[in-house]
Structures are given as structure tokens and as C-alpha cells.
Design a protein around this nucleic acid. Structure first.
Lengths: 198, 198
DNA sequence: GAGGGGTGTTAACCGTCACTAACATCGGTG
DNA sequence: CACCGATGTTAGTGACGGTTAACACCCCTC
């Protein structure tokens, strides 16, 4: 068959896996599906990954790393808590609009990981959430920390809803909509500086 | 073994199935798991349901019916759009706090249904969404309908996030938090559509 | 108290699927 | 050109799991 000199075989498999896992679920995708998706056969996948679990692990770890690193970079560049929140919102929205498959897999397949991978992904996720909680704590010091954490999870649910309303609204309009809703939800019950209120 | 003339065997299986499907996913639950969860063995389940798919179908149809009927009842009793939105929010929040397993299964397992069941559940879901969209359209007539639909999906994501932050916040506090966030998200941008872009 | 419907049990069947074995090909390198 | 490591192919193999078969029991009714 056409030999690909591309060193990107591994990355290609990872991308296809994310897409297929998002659509059919980890359990609903076979190794043969995976191979077929990248133009080879099932067993060829084992030349690049130890097995199906390792593959899912890599997908989830990559996502978690990307999100938490992006969060760190954004926070480093933020001038104040209000600005930081804006950046986090925009960053997360861009990610969920550009990579709906990754977002879907990210919060559905945690249970199918090995204990080691699960622990690692959980740690990264927790770190990312705490970045948001830290910013919110600056903005709303009167609020207990666990309430802030619940708020962050809720806003993630909101921002990650894009796979459910695919294709009906243009990307930039969707980004604006999610930003306005997310920002408003997180500042509910208090005044948002520079923003108009109800 | 203890023969209960209770006609509740079927309902018992449905409840256990919802719980197990929520925790492990449809594909991650075996018929034997199901039987064991209700104190019998796997094959006994076939006395009550035609098969695993039929079982999942019943679970999802029940949820969709409950939500859309609840929505209709609330709308019938609402005095004005603003009140209607309050009622819908409170109703959905109560459901998602009281039945986290059902909420989880509801938006994860659609893909595992038979085409017939899937069509039926989709129709019910669409109806429920349109109840919300109708109310929002009264409140924000200037907004295009597809943007309102996207907003509704986003708020569902927010309200359905409770399974992700289980047990950290007391139920009534969580209900208030979700109500404030959801209400605020849905009325966001009511008078300021001009926002900067990504 | 005989019969029957409803419900449960254990054993078997059979397809699917992750994974392995054994063998081919090819490009680069000495 | 011979070797070799990387990568691919086709044929198993063994476990798992949904479903069915065959049989047992209990309660209800005539």
C-alpha cells in the first residue's frame, strides 16, 4: 500500500480516536474501526500504542494537559482578576468550539481509564478548575470556596454544550453568546465592572 | 426465593438500570449486572424486557416524557413569560438534583437506542426545548430563534452539571446557585449585544 | 388438588472483539 | 547487496456477554 513517510502516524491515530470515541463512545469503537479510520487495519495500531486503554489514556491526558497549560499561560498574562476571567472564558470557548470531539471525550470517558491514567487526568483537571476558582475567589471573596467550585463546574457545562447545538449558529456568534452567558452566570448576584447590569 | 407479588419488579429493574447506565455507561453494564442489582440473575431480566436495548429505550423515553410533561404543566400554570421561565428553571433544577442518574443517561446514551426509540426520544426532547424557546422568544423577541435554541442548550448544560459537583454543596444552596446562574445566563446580553470578539 | 401463568435458575450457544503470532515489505545504511 | 528496524498484513485465540433453552417453583383459580 502507499507507504506514508509521514512521521505523523501516531498523531493521526490519536486524532481519529478522539473523533470516533466522541461519536460512538470508547466501548463502541473497535480496534478495526481505528485502523480503518487511518487507512490501515486494526492490528497495525499496536505498532504505535500498547492497546486501546493506552490510546484513550493518551487522548485524555493530552486534552487535560492542553487545557491546564493554556490556563496557566492565560493567567500569567492577565492584568487583574477581571481580565483573567475574560481570558479563561475566551480560551475555554475557543477550545470547545474548535475541538468539540475532545471536549466530549474529556468528560465522558474518565471511567474507562486505567487507575493510573485516571489519577493523572483527575489531577490535571483539578488544577484547571482551581485556576478558575482562584480567579473567582479574587472577584467574589465573600463566596465560600465550594460554591465557587460548583459554579465553575456549572459554567463548564454551559461552555461545553456546543456539541449539542452543532452547526446552527455561526462560530463567532456562538463564541459571543457563550461568553456573554458564561460571564453573566459567573457574576450573577453581583455587579460586573464595565458591564451593564439588569 | 422471597416471592413478592409486588408488580414493582419492572420498575425496580428500570431504576437500577438507570443508576448503572449512569455510572458505567450502557455498554459498560452487563445483563448479569442488571439482574444482580435487583437480587436475581441475568436471564430473569428477559421475563420483563425484550432485551438490553428495549430496557435503555424505556429508560430514555420515560425521562423525556417526564420532562416534557412537567414542562407543559408548568407552562399551563404560568402567569406571564417571566414567571414561566422561573417555573421552568425551578422544575428542571429539581429534576436534575433529584435524579442525577437520569440526567446523566439522558444526554449520553441517545446513540445506543434503536432508530425508532431514538426518533421518539428526539421528538420529545425537541418539544421540551421548544417550550423553553417559546418562553424566551416572548422575553427577547429581537433574538433570532436559533440563537435562543443554542442558549437553551447551553443552560441545560449548566443545570445538568450537578453530577459533576456531587455532594459538595447542600441541596437547597445548590438549587439557588443554579437558579441564579441560569436565570442570569438566559437574560444576558438582553440590552448589550455589541461585545468584542475572539 | 390439578393445571397454568408468571417468574426464577443453570447451562449452553454464538458472535464480537482485544490482542497475538507469523510472515511480508520497504527504505535506509554499512 | 545484505541486513535491519519500522510498519503492515492475514489468520488465529481466548474471553466476554447477550440471548435462548430447558427445567423448577409458587400462587391462584376452578
Amino acid at each position: 500500500m502507499g507507504k506514508r513517510p509521514a512521521g505523523g502516524r501516531r498523531a493521526h491515530i490519536l486524532a481519529a480516536a478522539a473523533e470516533l470515541f466522541a461519536e460512538h463512545g470508547y466501548r463502541g469503537v473497535t480496534i478495526d474501526d481505528l485502523g480503518r479510520a487511518v487507512g490501515t487495519t486494526g492490528p497495525a495500531v499496536y505498532r504505535h500504542f500498547a492497546g486501546k486503554e493506552a490510546l484513550l489514556g493518551q487522548v485524555l491526558v493530552d486534552i487535560s494537559v492542553r487545557l491546564s497549560e493554556q490556563g496557566e499561560e492565560l493567567l500569567a498574562r492577565a492584568e487583574d482578576p477581571d481580565h483573567a476571567l475574560d481570558l479563561l472564558l475566551r480560551g475555554h470557548i475557543a477550545f470547545s468550539l474548535d475541538e468539540p470531539a475532545l471536549i466530549t471525550v474529556h468528560d465522558r470517558e474518565l471511567g474507562n481509564l486505567t487507575p493510573q491514567d485516571r489519577a493523572r487526568v483527575r489531577r490535571l483537571q483539578r488544577g484547571y478548575v482551581e485556576q478558575w476558582v482562584g480567579v473567582l475567589a479574587d472577584l467574589r471573596p465573600e463566596e465560600p470556596r465550594n460554591a465557587l467550585r460548583a459554579s465553575v463546574h456549572a459554567v463548564f457545562g454551559l461552555l461545553n454544550s456546543t456539541p449539542h447545538s452543532r452547526g446552527t449558529v455561526r462560530r463567532d456568534a456562538m463564541a459571543r453568546l457563550l461568553f456573554a452567558m458564561g460571564r453573566s452566570a459567573l457574576t450573577a448576584g453581583r455587579e460586573a465592572p464595565g458591564q451593564n447590569d439588569t
